[in-house]
């Protein structure tokens, strides 16, 4: 049963990948495969990163509604990038090696996430209402600060960061692809090895403590992993608001049980289907008439509302 839903999804993903690579392919195959292959790899990478980050965050915050992006994680990353451009200037920023910039941003994001969300999660009982409000306020704060800086910098610098502040699946920053692949793979291995501990964390502070887990420490470890995954996906394609919520909710629907051993691969595969399949349809089938991010946010937004209305706050 468990294998069945996973295999069906894997099959769908393969079909999507083949369509993505071959639909309306004209000209030199070497070029097409190289050009599209990099995009495909980036999409799969982003899918796995976003879905895993969402799943981990939902486990440590013990709810099925919040996601790192709703809590303002990727807005924070954009703010950090914007601040960097503001301080160094576009020329200085673009002169720095991409990898160095990325690692500095990543370190700042991890630190900020631990300070902001670590204290929030470390409480004896996690208050969901407070989490939601804090997340919304953080999100607005980070976005407002970003747009405030936008207004202060000169137009050429603005162009440098503008690329970083919107979700974009058509223009993926492939400079970072190698680094992102390594970083994401390592992080995903850590997440996979933590799967049993994550199952226990999902039972809540009291039961996890009873079963001998150090809840606060595990939550911090998971937050670091979430921060790395969000940083990678945001650096590659920009902030994606509802993608994680959408794919993890679908994964919970089709999964036969809610262990992380099932949900981690399943949600990553479903994220791949949504991104690769959606991009193939929108880019080739509908001739880029609508950006994929808009469609995902539209559907994901509905899922968010449906979850809120159906489950309430419990």
């Amino acid at each position: 049963m468990r294998a069945k839903s996973l295999w069906i999804c894997c099959l769908l993903l393969v079909v999507c990948c083949v369509l993505f690579m071959t639909l309306e392919a004209r000209g030199n195959w070497d070029f097409v495969l190289w050009f599209r292959g990099r995009k495909l790899a980036a999409l799969l990478l982003v899918g796995a990163a976003v879905s895993t980050a969402t799943l981990l965050f939902q486990t440590i915050s013990r709810n099925h509604i919040l996601t790192p992006s709703i809590m303002g994680f990727d807005a924070l990353f954009t703010l950090i990038v914007t601040l960097a451009v503001f301080t160094f200037g576009a020329a200085g920023y673009n002169h720095l090696p991409v990898e160095v910039v990325f690692f500095v941003n990543l370190a700042l994001l991890i630190a900020a996430a631990l300070i902001l969300f670590g204290t929030l999660l470390g409480q004896y009982r996690v208050d969901l209402m407070r989490m939601v409000l804090t997340g919304i306020i953080f999100g607005i704060l980070f976005r407002s600060l970003t747009s405030f800086i936008f207004r202060m910098i000169d137009p050429s610098e603005f162009a440098t960061i503008q690329v970083n502040s919107y979700a974009r699946f058509n223009y993926i920053d492939v400079n970072l692809l190698g680094l992102a692949t390594v970083l994401t793979s390592v992080t995903l291995v850590f997440c996979w090895r933590m799967r049993r501990q994550l199952d226990v964390l999902g039972l809540g502070f009291e039961i996890a403590t009873n079963l001998g887990e150090h809840v606060a420490r595990r939550q911090k470890q998971a937050l670091v992993l979430v921060a790395v995954l969000v940083a990678v996906s945001t650096a590659l394609v920009g902030p994606v608001a509802f993608l994680g919520l959408l794919v993890v909710s679908i994964a919970r629907l089709v999964a036969p049980n809610e262990t992380h051993a099932t949900l981690l691969p399943l949600s990553a595969v479903i994220a791949g289907i949504v991104l690769v399949g959606g991009q193939a349809i929108l880019e080739r089938g509908l001739g880029m008439s609508t950006p994929l991010a808009v469609v995902i946010d539209f559907v994901g937004g509905f899922v968010f509302l449906a979850l809120l209305l159906r489950k309430g706050w419990t």
């Binding site: 939902q58 709810n63 226990v200 999902g202 809540g204 009873n210 079963l211």
Partner: peptide, 23 residues
């Protein structure tokens, strides 16, 4: 320990819950 009012978001069967006792 069995705390007061335990409820969690994860959907579990009775057997899966009892299996956690072996963790």
């Amino acid at each position: 320990i069995l705390p007061q009012e335990v409820h969690f978001a994860t959907r579990l069967t009775v057997k899966e819950l009892v299996q956690f006792g072996r963790y």
